[in-house]
Every structure is written in structure tokens, then in C-alpha cells.
Simulated scan of single mutants.
Amino acid sequence: MYLARVKAGHDRNQYYVVQSQDEKFVYLVNGTTRTCDRPRKKSYKHVQLVKKLPQEVLEAVNKPGLTENAKAAKLIKAYGQYILTRKD
């Protein structure tokens, strides 16, 4: 499971969870406006993949009983909090 930051379009600079992918496109969900039933279709050239997620972010979604949409929303929120609190 990894995230993608949108680089172009009306949803620029927003993070999504990559649900699936093929040769040309990635299908993105955020759990609220873009659910697993209606993923956002984006070209690879319009997204930046975030493949390495910190362990503390992944621990936020490893709770039993969460739906896929809830996991996506929680992962995006946890990553946003991580970005705001990290010290480089």
C-alpha cells in the first residue's frame, strides 16, 4: 500500500491511496470523496508516488475492523500529520 501526490489537475497537491494500476494509469481513492467504488483515474505523469511510508503511519491503519475506505482516509490523515510534525 502506498500513496500518491497529485501534481496536475483540480486536485493538485492532494494525497490519495493507490488502489490499483495498469500500464498507463493509476486508480486513486481517498476514502471520502473518492471511495473504492469510484476511484480517480490519473495518468502516471500527473502523480508522484510515495512508496516509502514511515512505520508510525502504517501503524495507524493496522486496526482490525476498518473498511477499505476508512483505511484509506486514516492513512492519508496519518501521513499528513507526519509531514506536519517531522523535523528535517
Rank of each mutant, 00 (worst) to 15 (best):
2 Y>L: 12
77 K>W: 06
58 L>Y: 12
84 L>F: 12
82 Y>V: 05
33 T>Q: 14
12 R>K: 11
73 A>C: 08
79 Y>A: 10
59 E>R: 08
40 R>T: 00
10 H>G: 10
33 T>Y: 11
3 L>V: 11
57 V>S: 03
65 G>W: 08
49 L>G: 07
5 R>A: 05
20 S>M: 09
56 E>Y: 01
63 K>I: 06
39 P>Q: 10
44 Y>I: 02
70 A>W: 08
4 A>D: 00
86 R>Y: 08
36 C>W: 09
42 K>M: 04
12 R>H: 06
51 K>I: 13
52 K>Q: 12
50 V>H: 09
85 T>M: 00
19 Q>S: 07
64 P>K: 15
50 V>Y: 05
80 G>I: 00
13 N>W: 11
15 Y>E: 03
5 R>F: 01
80 G>R: 10
33 T>P: 06
22 D>Y: 08
46 H>G: 03
47 V>R: 02
76 I>A: 05
51 K>R: 15
54 P>D: 02
57 V>Q: 07
59 E>G: 07
15 Y>W: 10
50 V>E: 13
27 Y>T: 03
69 N>H: 10
3 L>Y: 05
40 R>Y: 06
10 H>P: 04
11 D>L: 13
8 A>G: 02
25 F>K: 05
21 Q>F: 00
29 V>F: 02
11 D>Y: 11
74 K>N: 11
37 D>A: 11
46 H>A: 04
14 Q>T: 07
16 Y>T: 11
35 T>D: 08
84 L>E: 15
78 A>R: 01
31 G>F: 06
22 D>E: 13
43 S>R: 04
28 L>E: 04
44 Y>P: 04
64 P>V: 10
76 I>W: 04
25 F>W: 10
64 P>R: 14
21 Q>E: 15
3 L>S: 06
49 L>R: 10
55 Q>C: 09
76 I>E: 09
6 V>T: 07
40 R>W: 01
71 K>F: 11
63 K>E: 01
20 S>A: 15
30 N>D: 14
5 R>D: 03
17 V>P: 12
16 Y>E: 10
12 R>Y: 02
39 P>K: 13
15 Y>Q: 02
61 V>Q: 08
11 D>C: 05
58 L>C: 15
23 E>S: 14
71 K>M: 12
48 Q>P: 01
76 I>N: 04
55 Q>Y: 11
28 L>A: 00
15 Y>F: 15
72 A>S: 15
13 N>L: 11
67 T>K: 15
2 Y>D: 10
80 G>W: 03
13 N>A: 08
67 T>Q: 14
24 K>Y: 02
30 N>H: 09
7 K>N: 07
4 A>E: 00
41 K>C: 09
68 E>I: 14
10 H>K: 14
9 G>E: 03
72 A>G: 12
8 A>D: 07
10 H>N: 13
24 K>C: 05
27 Y>W: 04
50 V>T: 12
10 H>V: 08
39 P>N: 11
59 E>F: 06
62 N>D: 15
55 Q>I: 11
